[in-house]
Amino acid sequence: MSEIFDIYLLEAVLNGLLLGGLLALLSLGLNLVFGVIDVVWICYAELIMCGMYAVYYLYVQYHWPLVLAMLAAIALVALLGWILHQFVIRPVLNAEPINQLLVTGGVLFFLQAAATLVFGIEFKNLGVTLPSVRLGEMSFSAARLVAFGAALGGVVGLWLFLSRSYLGTAIRAISQDRAIMPLMGVDPGRIFALTSALGGGLAGLASCLLVLQYDIHPSIGLSFGPITFLICVLGGLGNMLGGFIAAFIFAQFIAVGGFFFAVEWGYVIAFIFFIAMMFWRPRGILGK
């Protein structure tokens, strides 16, 4: 009896690890945008929702090949990120910081309502089921394995881009000192727009992986939006590595908490842990 118990617990821990990869991917774009532009996109999860609808419609309604539909969705969400920055964030860039938070909250409201208006409230499903992978007596969803791999790929790719390329260097420079870079010939406006598109693209990548595992509906953003913000804050807003670690911590709370109690209790424990951590390390686990 105790042996079976342990293997299920191990399965929960490993599933938590896979969930951690997905959450890490979710928080990546948000963290990038915050680190560079110093703005929290409250509507980030709604951008992901747009990407999910794009994959769904291109693949199911217009019969595009799945990979092509996903690439198009990534491009679309990257465009949305750029539009969001140019038309919504830019006008309030010098306003009070809380206004920037609130204006993207307005976008959240708009996207959620517009999705209800255009797509209806029905749950939509891609109809693609990836097989589950068996390892001994444990089973894992292949979609989660793919997501985990994509998350690692996304993190490494982003790190290479930021550390090796000219544009990446400019992005990092601007995030360190916003005032001095224009003197060095870097145009902050262009870098911000580029970062927003990149953040949007990462949201698009996350949407491609979420759409494999979850049904799409207009309020799906509310179900994983909060946890994405909390991961970024727990890791230290703008701190990629911190966010990555925080994602795995949160995922373990949810998976193991959900194993012992109901899954909502896993979330409750994770959120309470977050609040407690904020008091202990207000600038995040890796914050100064």
């Binding site: 919504v88 306003a95 204006v103 909250g105 309502a113 209800t116 208006l117 209806g120």
Partner: peptide, 20 residues
């Protein structure tokens, strides 16, 4: 459905930008 919320969302964004 949700037409009011859609319009409301647009208005919120405009309010915060132009009429804080």
């Amino acid at each position: 459905p949700a037409l009011d919320a859609t319009i409301y969302g647009v208005m919120l964004v405009l309010f915060i930008i132009y009429m804080p």
